[in-house]
Structures are given as C-alpha cells and as structure tokens.
C-alpha cells in the first residue's frame, strides 16, 4: 500500500537538501568545463582544422548514441587504469572527477554544435568593422562577437545545462552523496521504507534547482548582452 507520511517527509527534506551545495558544485563545475571544451570544439569546426575537424565529427556521433550512465562507468573504470599506467596515484582522486570527465566527454561536442551556429549567426560585417577599426582579435571576439552570440546561444545552452543537471543525478551510482545519494542512503537506513517521501523531496529539489538556474541564466544573458535591441534576430 502506498502511503505518504508528511512528518517523515519534513524530517528527511532538510537532510537531503544538505546535499544541494555539493550537487550544485558538481553540476556547475561540470557545466563550466563543458562550455570551455565546447568552445574549443566549435573553434576547431569553424576554423575547419584538418584531422581535428573529422575527429570532432566522430566524437559527436559517438556520444549522441551513448547513454550517460555508460559514459560515467567507462570513465570510472578506465580513467584510473590510464592514470596508474602513467604512474599517478589515483586513490586520493575525488570521485567527482569521473563525473567531470564523463560530462565533458559527453557534452563538449554537443555544446560545440550550439556555439558554432551562434557564432555564425553574427554578421561577417561585425568582424570586418572590428578589424577595420584596429581591434585586437581578443577584443573583437569578446567585446563584439560574443555579446551578440549570447542571445542566440543562451536558450539552447541552458537546455544542455539542464541535461547535465539531470544526467549527473546518476553520480550516486559511483558512490557520491548528491541528492539521489542522500535519498538512497536515508531509505537504506530506514530499512527500505519511506521511498516516496525521500524521492518526493529529491524531485522537489531538482525542480527548484532547474527553476533557479533558468532564472539566473535569463538575468545573466540580459545583462551580459547589454540588452541591445534586435539582439536575437
């Protein structure tokens, strides 16, 4: 029989919510690393760097067909072997490193495919004008081009971040104490009872987490693009 005990729910909620900072840290760090790697992939594809361009295409098609859980296990079981072969001590490596590796591997080429069209959506004349007025390459990209990419790239990038939020909930499988990890632990110590209350708490926290991320992204993209009109055309 399915039953919901509100007082038990209220008791476990703060205990699960205590894992929010750690969950947020893993998601934020993984997303930031994927964004950087994705920008590098986009640069390779825009510049059509020989060999690397083809590699990125194979990489993209591979990860598109991989469930995240498989990438996570691949990283968890293979990366330590490589590191040990390179003579490194992996015993003190924090486990979230495997999550970072799996997210970057799984998302960089996908995020590259978000950044590339955003870059190409900026009129070539904007590059011409920046060059003609003596901008350095850095100023051309970061003062003129990137601010105009943000209104185009922000919504699909946000969707990728939400995917990362959801996929990383599998990190409990390698023993990390995120929201799901905490909930499973609490259920375990409660002899398998109270599943509904625990998972309801996790669901509520994910809902809030994503809503907060979306609001923050909207605020940031409005601010960093200067809110110029016609920006998203």
């Amino acid at each position: 029989m399915l039953s919901f005990d509100p007082s038990y729910f209220l008791a476990v909620f703060p205990q699960i919510a205590a894992a929010l900072p750690f969950t947020f840290y893993v998601v934020a760090a993984a997303a930031a690393m994927s964004l950087l790697a994705g920008a590098a992939v986009a640069a390779v594809r825009i510049a059509r760097v020989p060999v690397l361009y083809a590699l990125c295409e194979v990489w993209l098609s591979f990860v598109r067909s991989m469930p995240f859980v498989l990438l996570l296990f691949l990283m968890y079981f293979t990366v330590p072997a490589f590191l040990r072969a390179a003579g490194l001590d992996t015993s003190r490596l924090p486990k979230e490193v495997y999550v970072f590796a799996a997210v970057v591997f799984g998302f960089a080429p996908v995020i590259g495919e978000v950044i590339r069209p955003a870059y190409l959506s900026v009129d070539r004349g904007q590059h011409d004008a920046a060059r003609a007025f003596g901008f350095s390459d850095f100023d051309r990209i970061f003062r003129i081009i990137v601010p105009q990419m943000i209104p185009v790239a922000a919504p699909p990038l946000m969707n990728q971040v939400i995917e990362i939020v959801k996929d990383t909930s599998l990190m409990y499988l390698i023993g990390l104490m995120d929201l799901m990890g905490r909930a499973n632990l609490l259920i375990h110590v409660n002899m398998g009872r109270g599943k509904l209350e625990n998972y309801a708490a996790v669901a509520l926290l994910y809902w809030v987490l994503v809503a907060v991320l979306e609001a923050a992204a909207q605020y940031l993209s409005r601010r960093s693009s200067g809110g110029f009109p016609g920006g998203a055309s």
């Binding site: 004349g125 904007q126 011409d128 003609a132 003129i144 601010p147 105009q148 200067g226 016609g230 920006g231």
Partner: peptide
C-alpha cells in the same frame, strides 16, 4: 597588418555599426 589597419578607418555599404553598442 595591424599597424597598417590603424592608419585607416572604413565606412561600409551596410553600415556595420556594432549592434551591441
């Protein structure tokens, strides 16, 4: 090339004003 560019400026057929500025 950059030194040469600093000697001139340009007016474009399609204006090419920086849209975000």
């Amino acid at each position: 090339v950059r030194a040469l560019r600093r000697q001139s400026t340009m007016v474009f057929q399609n204006f090419n004003l920086f849209r975000n500025h």
